[in-house]
């Protein structure tokens, strides 16, 4: 296993953690539990969103940095193959991934600010929409990353 493969696995694991955290927070903001939760879904919705903020920011930055470190390997080795295979939609989806990730980086200071305790009631909508934007970026990037990573099948 070379260094890039190892970093790619760590990048993927961090992305899984980020995906879980941002999904928890987004669900707790958009469909909060109104009464004490008994079911799995109910407890999923009942988490306090504020407790995820710092973890989400740190995980986003770490995942972004690792992605940036292994990106040249993709650019030199993988992208050429994907283009030779004529997989233009997948190439375009990855292009969107890099730009969406960059846009997400720019809203992190505002995301942190509007999730700061004590939560200001007048910023509920801003908080919810910033969270939804980051959740969309994370989900898009996670899925596209997996599709590109597995595009030639395991072990090929």
């Amino acid at each position: 296993m070379n260094t890039t493969t190892l970093l790619l696995i760590v990048h993927g694991l961090l992305a899984v953690a980020l995906l879980g955290a941002i999904t928890h927070q987004a669900v707790s903001v958009w469909v909060p539990a109104r009464k004490p939760a008994g079911s799995f879904v109910g407890r999923f919705r009942a988490v306090p969103g504020t407790s995820y903020v710092n973890a989400i920011i740190v995980l986003y930055l770490l995942t972004f940095m690792l992605g940036g470190i292994i990106y040249p390997e993709y650019r030199v080795e993988a992208r050429v193959v994907v283009e030779q295979m004529g997989l233009w939609k997948q190439t375009g989806a990855f292009e969107l991934k890099e730009h969406f990730a960059a846009v997400g980086l720019g809203i992190l200071p505002a995301y942190w600010h509007y999730w700061r305790q004590p939560l200001a009631g007048e910023h509920d909508r801003t908080r919810a929409l910033l969270t939804a934007t980051i959740a969309f970026i994370v989900w898009w990037n996670f899925l596209v990353g997996h599709i590109l990573n597995n595009i030639r099948g395991f072990g090929s």
Partner: peptide, 10 residues
């Protein structure tokens, strides 16, 4: 307006 943060990003 704080909403510009997510409006412009989207």
């Amino acid at each position: 307006w704080p909403g510009w943060t997510w409006v412009v990003a989207l």
